[in-house]
């Protein structure tokens, strides 16, 4: 069984930009230990001579002409999707 500390899971949550409370953190620690134990099964395989398959189907780089396409979506529509906006910008809390 893989063991993982609550602190390590807290770091993982921070890396993942998830603000979890302590109960959630404890439950997820348990789940993550179980899942990691299961996926460790792959250690049994000798893959030293095998290349990686990052994609399937064998497509190579796909090119197209760099021309502006008429788009149906307007700036106004996109700004309207933002939770908070002012005139032509999206509002966010102070960064610095």
């Amino acid at each position: 069984m893989v063991q993982i500390t609550t602190n390590a899971v807290r770091d993982l949550a921070q890396l993942s930009a998830l603000a979890l409370d302590d109960d959630e953190l404890a439950a997820l620690t348990d789940d993550i230990e179980h899942i990691l134990t299961y996926i460790n099964k792959l250690d049994e395989l000798d893959t030293s001579e095998v290349p990686s398959s990052y994609q399937v189907g064998g497509l190579q780089n796909q090119y197209r002409d760099d021309v502006v396409q008429p788009h149906t979506v307007t700036t106004e529509q996109l700004l309207n999707l933002a939770p908070e906006r002012s005139a032509t910008t999206i509002k966010v809390p102070k960064v610095l």
């Binding site: 949550a13 993942s16 930009a17 998830l18 603000a19 993550i32 966010v92 809390p93």
Partner: peptide
């Protein structure tokens, strides 16, 4: 803060299984 906004938005917006998979992925 911006970091707080990200963290809380994602905590409230995702279900537990989303969080599990994101964290396993980060790991």
């Amino acid at each position: 803060t911006l970091a707080e906004l990200y963290g809380r938005t994602r905590d409230q917006g995702f279900v537990t299984e989303n969080k599990r998979r994101i964290m396993i992925g980060s790991y």
